[in-house]
Computed example of a mutant assay.
Amino acid sequence: MRITIDTKLCIGSGQCALTAPSVFTQDDDGFSALLPGREDGGGDPMVPEAVRACPVQAIAVTED
């Protein structure tokens, strides 16, 4: 699995970081970012819910 965040779409709502805090965080400007080494989700079962929680669909998960 590969997680990407479209930084042009992200509005910084933080829903991803609230839903899957072991994978997502917010950068210094308040926008979503992946924690280092978590581009594959780290097996966190909450990643799909974090994707659904994004109000602007800025997060995509693709299978390798």
Results as ranks from 00 to 15, higher is better:
16 C>R: 10
38 R>L: 06
60 A>G: 08
50 A>W: 03
63 E>W: 08
10 C>E: 05
64 D>I: 11
25 T>E: 12
5 I>M: 02
43 G>I: 09
55 P>F: 04
62 T>N: 08
61 V>K: 01
4 T>W: 04
17 A>G: 01
29 D>M: 05
39 E>W: 13
58 A>T: 14
60 A>D: 14
42 G>H: 09
25 T>P: 03
25 T>V: 08
45 P>R: 14
55 P>E: 14
35 L>W: 04
9 L>P: 01
56 V>H: 06
22 S>G: 10
35 L>F: 09
48 P>M: 08
18 L>R: 03
61 V>G: 00
9 L>S: 12
30 G>V: 04
24 F>V: 10
26 Q>C: 03
19 T>N: 07
50 A>R: 02
48 P>R: 05
47 V>M: 10
54 C>W: 06
34 L>T: 12
20 A>T: 12
1 M>Q: 12
38 R>A: 03
60 A>T: 15
63 E>L: 05
55 P>V: 01
42 G>Y: 02
23 V>G: 04
44 D>A: 13
31 F>P: 11
32 S>Q: 05
42 G>Q: 09
60 A>H: 14
32 S>N: 10
24 F>D: 02
31 F>A: 05
22 S>D: 04
33 A>K: 13
56 V>P: 08
63 E>K: 13
4 T>R: 13
51 V>L: 09
37 G>L: 00
10 C>S: 06
2 R>I: 03
8 K>R: 09
2 R>N: 08
31 F>M: 13
62 T>S: 15
21 P>K: 08
18 L>K: 12
49 E>F: 13
59 I>S: 08
23 V>W: 07
56 V>S: 11
3 I>D: 04
4 T>M: 09
59 I>T: 08
26 Q>K: 11
39 E>I: 12
20 A>S: 13
57 Q>P: 04
12 G>S: 11
37 G>N: 01
11 I>L: 03
19 T>M: 14
32 S>I: 06
27 D>T: 00
14 G>K: 07
